[in-house]
Write a protein that binds this DNA or RNA. Structure first.
Lengths: 169, 169
DNA sequence: TCCCGTTCCGAGTAAATTACTCTACTCATT
DNA sequence: AATGAGTAGAGTAATTTACTCGGAACGGGA
């Protein structure tokens, strides 16, 4: 089961991806717009920052933005960051392997065999889908306008001459 | 994440499948042999019985046995019975659908789209693998003896003339 | 330099879930 | 009727989830 935390994270990231290139987005705006409890969202964004997915800017004119392009942010990484390993059992996790204590011969464990299939299938999907893919798939079937600009508390931010200069620092 | 409950259930079912045709197996023997807390196992077996996967017999000579052949018991059913739906989100569950409250247009939800893929992949695997498949795959790669008979408290039960007459009642 | 807007951090907490245990009951067979 | 089994429901400790609170740290502008 995907936790609310991970779901909120995905929603926030999608919003940030749509606002990509428009400068930092305030936690407060994001929370209001996506109807996510603000304090909870703070935790989540911080996690995502520690994962290298987001970057932040403090003080006036600050907020959060993507650290990488939406094409390079995969759902697997996001969900692992917030919910832990994708694998249904620790003994089939590639990113967080741990032996099951009760199972003595791992090789001969049928449950493990099948769960490994499940893990692989899940990982193939989630590590193969980027934020950009997600957005594209949604927009393709329901081509809505690129959305009124996300930020609202800060009305007159300049959107920067050329789009999306992503600071690498 | 697969719960211990579901894992215990699978282990117990595998053992019962291997003992299929040898008459009822005692909870106590199953618990000891599979190193599962007995009282907990009782709950689990009862669940499986309610699901129509197991049948039981009370009194002396009683115990649990499969209600269907190992070929007809699919992992998906077992796991759903104990851990609930396979789907990572209620809104993509086929067996336990529920709309997400915050998501207004389900059709246009990208998260849902991807999670549906995950659910489908998982279900394809788990609803496509039977107890018999599981056992066969294990035995094929490590062809161990069919195991010393499971029961030990009751030494001299007659194994029934022809194998495996499964009562349909 | 001081203020203010903003993120960052540690702790705390209520509710739900998990992984069990306890006690007693019911039912079948001998 | 005694005994050997499963059946039922309540209870509970530990963990996880989904948050909240209060304030410290930092950055930029006046």
């Amino acid at each position: 089961m995907l936790s609310k935390k991970a779901k909120y994270a995905l929603r926030a990231l999608i919003a940030l991806a749509r606002a990509d290139g428009d400068g930092p987005v305030l936690i407060a705006d994001l929370a209001r717009r996506e109807r996510i409890p603000q304090k909870f969202l703070e935790l989540i964004l911080l996690d995502l920052k520690r994962q290298g997915i987001l970057q932040s800017k403090k003080g006036r004119g600050g907020g959060y933005l993507l650290r990488k392009e939406p094409e390079a942010i995969y759902l697997g990484q996001v969900i692992r960051a917030l919910d832990g390993p994708l694998a249904p059992l620790p003994c089939v996790s590639r990113t967080a392997y741990a032996p099951c204590e009760e199972c003595d011969d791992e090789k001969g464990c049928g449950i493990r065999l099948v769960m490994k299939e499940v893990r692989d299938a899940t990982a193939r999907i989630l590590d193969g889908t980027s934020l950009a893919d997600l957005i594209e798939r949604v927009d393709r079937q329901r081509p809505k306008r690129k959305g009124a600009p996300l930020r609202s508390s800060r009305a007159k931010t300049r959107a920067g001459g050329a789009k999306s200069e992503r600071r690498t620092a």
